[in-house]
Design a protein around this nucleic acid. Structure first.
Lengths: 257, 257
DNA sequence: ACAAAAGTGTTTATAATACACCCATGA
DNA sequence: TCATGGGTGTATTATAAACACTTTTGT
């Protein structure tokens, strides 16, 4: 694969890309007790918001393309993203919006055909610690932001649908697997982990029971108490023990595991 | 979409197809206490086995394409198939095998380029009652058969990997959701349902506990006893109550449901 | 009558749930 | 000192798991 950085401009050779195939990334973060999604505002006349997405090189594995696309469009480097669904409806893209904004987006006329194609897109997701990420808009984006689910703007094409499916996906996962840790800083309180679970599952959980259930999984390391901040009793800080977590996963975890 | 039946020949206009995108179907059935997969043997010189697969028309939703492809290649008509993963590695197809067999497969030279493309394939699956299916090979297949997991032949490209992922997918599902019923005839015994679960989960389950666990879900209708056959006490026949099943799903089902 | 399979029951251990209690801390 | 959040305990109920008992049926 030739090393063309799509983050700087769109003047690359379209022949190097797989036609009709795109990638869209749903990057979830957790901040101030809210689940948030990373969205881009395009450089365009209208107010166009979208998921960070891109294309696949002909000589590039799709999973690798997802990593690269995210890097180019947001500056965020992740070792992998998880594929969750491929969206293949013919009418999933409204190309009129695109065509109207070609000029303001700096898209040349020879690229019009490329964008007018039907695209099948594959959704990838990742959960990240917002504190560790410093997303930066690429050349084609005016702005990048973490949007909470309530304030999530109207997104282009079927991107709102893609977000919805990603949320269902992760809700399902967190329901069965003790995950979601990557959304938190390295050290976290049980309270914050519970808040995370509650915001993913969209329901309240019992404090005491949550704590016991989590701790019984035996995948956490307890540290000394945190000092600052809280006006009340200082909680323990925990971190995640990946070793033990792997073992837990290997031995299975489910009704009939 | 023009009505071209790909099941009769390959002489269709390639321009009508989405380039580089294919569909592969993993159709699971259950027979003689074994989980089986539907595979095709191509008309070719070498012994080439493959999943029933095909392509997507430019003016066709991908989900619809899966239904059509399955119909054309096996004769099986299903209302929908479930997408489980998209496979996008560059080296997932060994085109040498294809090129060697072009002639014996009746593939014209103008199609060589088509088949030489890189393809990204989306895997779809369905669970069916083998008794209700009468799969028929299409023009391009010498044979079609239900292969048990033990006797599953070596499949072309990454199709064995695709089957493996499909099995993991369904194993996961059956572990959390009381499903799998579509693999059985309309009326079935608890024993046969247990056999199904055991062959999906690849482990033995306790007879009494299984029965109680299933019946407590309250999604079955009990009929009168079956008469013939058994040399011993005749078991009840059950059927699946879709209404109640839907309600169960709506109210959620999981640790933190 | 007997063997084998089906249905049901019993016991024990484990887990979920609801809620109460005490402790630590800063205002 | 007191309100509040945090950690832990407890009683109750529900579920899981192992296995024993009884029933039915064809041979």
């Amino acid at each position: 694969m030739k090393n063309i950085d799509l983050s700087k401009n769109l003047n690359f050779d379209l022949d190097q890309l797989v036609p009709g195939q795109s990638i869209d990334c749903v990057i979830m973060g957790f901040d101030q007790n809210e689940l948030k999604i990373l969205v881009l505002k395009w450089k365009a006349e209208g107010e166009i918001w979208a998921l960070p997405g891109g294309f696949v090189f002909k000589e590039e594995n799709m999973d690798k393309a997802a990593i690269r696309v995210l890097k180019e469009r947001t500056g965020i480097e992740l070792p992998f993203l998880e594929q969750f669904k491929t969206f293949g409806n013919i009418n999933r893209r409204d190309t009129d919006i695109l065509l109207k904004n070609m000029k303001s987006m700096g898209i040349g006329s020879k690229m019009v055909d490329w964008f007018k194609q039907r695209f099948i897109t594959t959704g990838y997701l990742s959960l990240v610690d917002i504190q560790k990420c410093d997303p930066k808009p690429d050349f084609s984006s005016e702005m990048i932001k973490w949007a909470s689910l309530e304030e999530l703007p109207h997104l282009i094409f079927d991107h709102n649908e893609i977000v919805k499916i990603a949320l269902d996906f992760i809700k399902n996962r967190v329901n069965y697997l003790p995950i979601g840790i990557t959304l938190l800083p390295e050290k976290f309180t049980m309270k914050s982990l519970q808040n995370l679970y509650e915001s993913i599952l969209q329901k309240k959980l019992d404090r005491g029971n949550f704590q016991r259930k989590m701790l019984k999984l035996n995948i956490f390391i307890r540290h000394e108490k945190q000092l600052e901040g809280g006006a009340h009793k200082a909680p323990y800080l925990y971190s995640f023990d990946e070793e033990k977590y792997k073992k837990l996963l290997e031995q299975g975890y489910g009704f009939y595991s």
